[in-house]
């Protein structure tokens, strides 16, 4: 079957989609967007977290056909989304610890790099989409809020400590610019 949807603001079309395929497969294998990761394919790890019509979902549990006509935002579209939200913030790389490397990233992406929240990085795209969603809803989250919001995203490398740091850092930086 054919599936049409908007991904990161652009209309996309996938052909010859098998009816049992997930949105995750379509993104990764048909639309050239492998940023969303395939770690468990049963909604237990959050590595494939994307926004579907604005809601956080596991792309592995959305049938490709269910995405028909919907809007999807993946990790590849986070920077653009951040820029749309706050056209003045986010674009400049001056807040990062490493301007040369982190220009063009969304604030939460930059914070993950700066805080050392990335090791193998396989969980990172899903965590970024979830953390971005949290900070959009709750600009100054408590640690308990962060933990609850990220409780659907497994990380095997970091022990989560630097991930918490990264979300705190992104929130603090956003607070400074307001």
């Amino acid at each position: 079957m054919r599936v049409n949807c908007t991904v990161n603001g652009r209309p996309r079309e996938a052909d010859d989609v098998w009816e049992g395929e997930s949105l995750l497969y379509v993104l990764r294998e048909r639309l050239g967007l492998p940023g969303s990761k395939n770690a468990c394919e049963q909604g237990e790890c959050g590595s494939c977290t994307v926004r579907l019509d604005g809601e956080l979902v596991c792309a592995c549990l959305v049938a490709a056909g269910q995405a028909e006509g919907r809007e999807v935002v993946t990790v590849e579209g986070l920077a653009e989304l951040a820029a749309q939200r706050a056209p003045d913030a986010g674009a400049a790389g001056d807040q990062g610890r490493d301007g040369a490397q982190t220009a063009g990233l969304s604030p939460v992406q930059r914070a993950f790099v700066d805080a050392g929240a990335v090791q193998c990085g396989f969980c990172t795209p899903g965590l970024l989409v979830a953390a971005d969603d949290l900070l959009a809803r709750v600009p100054d989250p408590s640690d308990a809020d962060i933990r609850e919001a990220l409780s659907g995203n497994l990380c095997r490398c970091t022990g989560y400590e630097k991930i918490l740091d990264a979300v705190r850092l992104a929130a603090a930086r956003a607070g400074e610019t307001v």
Partner: peptide, 18 residues
């Protein structure tokens, strides 16, 4: 900072399954 950090936060880093 990690040299692969930016690639990993943008989703561009090519894992074996990608």
């Amino acid at each position: 900072l990690r040299p692969d950090g930016t690639l990993k936060v943008t989703g561009e880093f090519a894992y074996a399954s990608d």
